[in-house]
Amino acid sequence: MNVPLDRELIFSLQSGDVDALGALYDRHSALVYRTAYAITGDPDAASDLLQDVFVRLSRFAHRVDPRRPLEPWLYRMTANLAYTWLKRRKRWLHPLDDAMEWLLDSARERSLQQQAEKNAEAEQLHQAILKLPVQQRVVVVMYYINDLSLQEIAEILEIPIGTVKSRLHYGRQSLRKVLNLDADIQGEVICEFT
């Protein structure tokens, strides 16, 4: 049985075939979810963004060019929606987060003590990623997790390649520092990408 290409599925979706959307979801949902989760650090938000991205793919299918690969469109939409989610969350939920943090502090302390140390590294990495400024985080996620090239990232985010390099450089530097990966590296040239 022939597996339809993305191009064929997009044509079908444009003519109103909902099954084509299901097939595209099966094919690409993992990359959208992975990207959304890595940027937001929140599984519920990542599920909502996953849903939003594919609902938008259906709504705006007529604007998608079937002759071009679909992944860059999905990455761009995921990054844009994740930016919006983070901005909205910052605006509305930070005061609530602070209060919850204060209330949950003692409970969390107990729970952390009980947690096995096997998760310590993953948690440290998770926290390190979430501490990156969002623009650096998006580039780091696309480069290291999604294996996109600098050129591809620049095209997806519609920014100059030099900006991608510099965001990646600073993001990478912060992560290495937190994770103690560059203890032996000396004299790294900060302006190498300018």
């Binding site: 989760y37 996953l50 993953a122 998770h126 780091v140 290291y144 990966l181």
Partner: peptide, 16 residues
């Protein structure tokens, strides 16, 4: 090493 740590981390992430 950073790339492999990040990939290992995302592989353990929850599924939708």
């Amino acid at each position: 090493e950073l790339a492999s740590l990040l990939k290992a981390w995302i592989a353990e992430a929850p599924k939708p």
